[in-house]
């Protein structure tokens, strides 16, 4: 008798085996949430200082509004984690709209720059082409007219497609608060589902992509059941740096397989110092699989997601190596 794949089995995971301690992505499960915005106040400051003051004066009840493609939906469904009485439109602040490729070979992208401006930017295309991997697949074309990398990061979804990509690029976030600005490595921004290390009285100003130097290649890929318009069942953002046929650096960051995007130390260990080879890549992929701690939900089972981590990491590393000129 050939097997059948029971739907019941998927439900059993939900019923018994898996205890859902955190709600991974879904802002759409609350039946009482409704579909329209409740009352909000709207402010559109024109300086970082003014924006920070509004945020600080709001006692945690204000949220920055960039593209709004997550925030407006969350406010409509009354996501309890995103309860804002004031939205602060940050698109009129000059620093948040900058795209600046500097002499050192680094790139600054303001927190409010929409994705379409990023993937059409000549400096991005020339110097940081791999960021286009995620910038061009978040939502569809009209979403990319509004959505931002800054918003994707601050939204703190474990499934945020750009976050592993930013982590792989060693991006540093500049955050302004009442006590001035501070810099945070991007891998330290997300702390849990929809939780970040950026305080409610702070504002993400920009993301800095340091010059990766020669021999660098990166890639982000995700798995979705459709070909577009979907949330990653799992995603892998990777980068490698190759010198003399050896990996001198390697970073693997996974989406959708833990309460936050995770930078996999074991993958870096498996790569760094090793000759560029299928074996090293496979070991890094297996380390990614082992590091994942996903849940089962409507988008996939835990077991399936772990498996995908291996597949996606391997495929992404192969592309990154190719881009680094290593193959």
């Amino acid at each position: 008798m050939l097997p059948t794949i029971p739907y019941v089995r998927l439900r059993l995971h939900l019923n018994g085996i898996i205890d859902i301690k955190y709600d991974f992505f879904s802002v759409r499960t609350d039946n009482q949430g409704g579909s329209l915005l409740k009352w909000i106040d709207y402010q559109a400051p024109e300086s970082v200082a003014d924006a920070v003051k509004i945020l600080a004066d709001s006692n945690g009840n204000a949220r920055p509004l960039a593209g709004g493609t997550d925030l407006i939906v969350q406010l409509r469904v009354k996501d309890p984690r995103v309860n804002a009485e004031t939205v602060v439109d940050i698109k009129k602040i000059p620093e948040l709209n900058q795209m600046d490729y500097d002499k050192s070979g680094g790139l600054t992208i303001g927190a409010a720059v929409p994705l379409h401006l990023i993937y059409n930017n000549p400096d991005v295309i020339k110097h940081f082409p791999a960021i286009i991997d995620s910038a061009s697949l978040i939502g569809g074309t009209p979403i990319q007219g509004r959505a931002t990398l800054g918003g994707n990061l601050c939204n703190g979804a474990p499934s945020g497609d750009s976050i592993p990509n930013l982590v792989a690029h060693n991006v540093v976030a500049t955050v302004a608060g009442p006590n001035g600005t501070r810099e945070i490595p991007v891998e330290d921004v997300c702390t849990g589902p929809r939780q970040t290390s950026i305080d409610s009285n702070e504002l993400l100003v920009s993301l800095y992509f340091p010059n990766p130097g020669d021999g660098f290649g990166a890639n982000y890929i995700r798995f979705i059941p459709r070909n577009e318009m979907d949330i990653a069942v799992a995603g892998a953002g990777v980068s490698v740096k190759i010198s003399d046929g050896k990996f001198v650096d390697g970073r693997v960051c996974l989406a959708s397989v833990a309460p936050k995007p995770i930078l996999v130390e074991g993958s870096s260990k498996a790569l760094i110092g090793q000759p560029v080879s299928d074996e090293a890549i496979q070991k890094a992929a297996e380390a990614a699989r082992d590091a994942a701690s996903p849940i089962s939900d409507m988008r996939g089972t835990a077991e399936y997601r772990k498996h995908l981590c291996e597949v996606l990491t391997r495929r992404a590393l192969n592309t990154a190596v190719e881009r680094a000129g290593g193959k």
């Binding site: 939900l14 019923n15 759409r28 499960t29 459709r226 979907d230 949330i231 939900d297």
Partner: peptide, 24 residues
């Protein structure tokens, strides 16, 4: 319809109820 153990549809949006797009 992906139903949870409380009998609630958990994918009641056009994001998670995956109808084919032009690209599919």
């Amino acid at each position: 319809y992906f139903m949870n153990d409380e009998g609630r549809m958990t994918n009641s949006s056009l994001l998670d109820y995956r109808m084919p797009t032009a690209l599919d």
